[in-house]
Amino acid sequence: MQQLINGITLGTIYGLIAVGYTMVYGIVGMINFAHGDIFMVGSFLSLIALLGLAALGVTSVPLALALTLIFAAGLAALYGWTVERIAYRPLRGSFRLAPLISAIGMSIVLQNFVQVGQGARVKPMDALIPGGIELMNQGGFAVQLSWMQIAIVATTLLVLAVFTWLVTATPLGRSMRACEQDIRMAGLLGIDTDRTIGLTFVIGAALAAVAGLLFLLYYGVIDFFIGFLAGVKAFTAAVLGGIGSLPGAVLGGLLIGLIEVFWSAYFSVAYKDVAAFAILILVLIFRPSGIMGRAEVEKV
């Protein structure tokens, strides 16, 4: 039961990052390798904002968090846009591995940029929202639900609700879905595809930054390397859910979070990353279209 709660909390964070992967993959058909590092940048921005707000004398925790959320999401979105503009847009129509290699380059750049700018040491932070409620207590086994976890899941749900509204009910969402179906046709029909793709990256980056903030709050420790592991796991989540499918990404995130937590609890903490990677490999081999994805028919 406790593991379930922890797993869901972790899973929502993965889910938020996975949405970014799945969205970009759905529209541009590339794996945005630097997405995990945007997440990392987001969590650094969050930490800087929190420290800055504390220095400016903002003491109300909800206010500080809300401001941090806006700050981090906004600036990470700028990062997302810049990465797309510099590293991917010029490569549209190039040979198929080019954007992926460029994305790997961008990932290395972001990691080392943060390392150079902020130092290689881990950044610890005190818990902002302490305490919690005890759900039940049976023979010494207490099931804790911390306020932090509630806050994380609630934030995720709120962000995803806004995001869903954005994709389903606005003109932007419509052009995004059009680009996903057929990008050339969408272009011919007068949709500014460059702008749509740019905005996709912006939204994905903003979501990753939210995940970055939540990650910071949950673990209280970040370093410049967190993006790599979280990125691979979130990508696994996206693939597991069926790449290109937005609900699939969230579902996949939850599953990965649960698997990781249960695996650590019942088998071995040391091999928890191996479990995630092994799942990725197995899913790709046996069901590459994922849980909610569509099976692709190869066009000859």
Partner: peptide, 23 residues
């Protein structure tokens, strides 16, 4: 103090620049 780590930064930038300019 971090100067040596610029190495990887240059690496990554070169990778991107290479793909963009001479794939």
């Amino acid at each position: 103090g971090d100067l040596p780590t610029y190495r990887m930064l240059i690496f990554g930038l070169a990778l991107v620049a290479m793909m963009v300019m001479r794939p």
